[in-house]
Design a protein around this nucleic acid. Structure first.
Lengths: 186, 186
DNA sequence: ATCGTCATGTAACGTGTTACATGATTGT
DNA sequence: ACAATCATGTAACACGTTACATGACGAT
């Protein structure tokens, strides 16, 4: 049972609170950088598929004079599928492919799997980035002469992106560590 | 005539040198972060489409005992289409959507449109990033309390990515400025 | 003789994009 | 009465993914 990124995003959001297709669309429109399409042509069919697979269930709820909204919530199978996805180990290949899916997973991890899992995620990610960034630098150094200035610069831009991710990872680890030390609350 | 990103990537690469589908695939496999799929099922049909649109022309060339390779090169219509794409102004919306297409365009700009165009591109990009980064920071500040820790951190990661891009942009501008001052060569 | 790599394709499939359609509700 | 927004869909289409297929060439 392999789902698209959009489907996982929907599962994660529905885990946070039952929502209608319209609600979910608004989230995608309003939230910067979670740039999934806000088009109904993507979201409604995706919800339909998830319902057919038994991962979510929708029911029409006309709350307080508003027009009918179909609220979706996760089934137990849906929660299980979401957890399975979130528990996937942070792999080298995934890091190479890009940060998109990894950051989406991180955004849901703490809520669904707890703080310890989120911390583990960050540590695994940090490890992989500490391997990948030098790998990229090395590639740039050895290939430098075969590239145009623009090519070099474009690659440099990508490497800096990963370096920035690495910086963020250590920052995030510190944030988590501090929060777990200081207050046990919430 | 709107093409997919992959198609533009192929046009840009073919402008640099005539290549076979296999050559192009190798580039995607070997180059980190230009992560377009290396699958023949994407590249060969894309080349076919480009040929049907008259943007490239392929001819079989059996060079020196090797087995037959179909080498593609740009037609004048292809060059025109590539230039049209590269000349698109750097727009706010494009920056919000992500850096992917912009960096691909930058990688080809100098070669096809010349150094001045590349410099202009960078300056436009810098301007948009100087607008967008504070916008994102503001969003984070105002929404902070409504978000989970993971949500905040995920957003922070994205913002840092854009900040890193901004840093790179100024760096790249400096590189270009220096090169155009120092040596006129190549 | 056989295996790996070079090289080009094809066919089924899923899914996102774009654009259109519909009707209810709220505000003026 | 009318427009704007809420809310859900649908249909055509393009494109990439996955997996399979084919055959030539070079090496052992």
């Amino acid at each position: 049972m392999s789902l698209s990124l959009l489907s996982y995003a929907l599962l994660g959001l529905l885990e946070q609170q039952p929502s209608s297709g319209y609600d979910l669309r608004k989230i995608f429109v309003q939230t910067p950088m979670w740039s999934y399409s806000d088009s109904p042509g993507a979201i409604y069919p995706a919800l339909e598929r998830l319902e057919k697979s038994g991962l979510i269930r929708g029911r029409v709820e006309a709350s307080a004079g508003l027009r009918q909204r179909k609220l979706f919530r996760l089934t137990s199978a849906g929660t299980a599928e979401l957890k399975k996805w979130l528990r996937k180990p942070v792999s080298r290949e995934e890091v190479v492919r890009g940060m998109g899916e990894l950051m989406l997973r991180f955004a849901f991890t703490e809520r669904v799997l707890g703080g310890a899992a989120a911390m583990q995620f960050l540590k695994d990610l940090e490890k992989e980035l500490r391997w990948y960034v030098p790998t990229l630098r090395e590639f740039l150094d050895t290939q430098e002469e075969a590239m145009t200035i623009s090519g070099r610069l474009a690659l440099e831009s990508g490497i800096r992106g990963y370096e920035s991710q690495l910086g963020w990872t250590t920052y995030a680890i510190a944030m988590y560590a501090e929060r777990n030390k200081g207050g046990t609350s919430s």
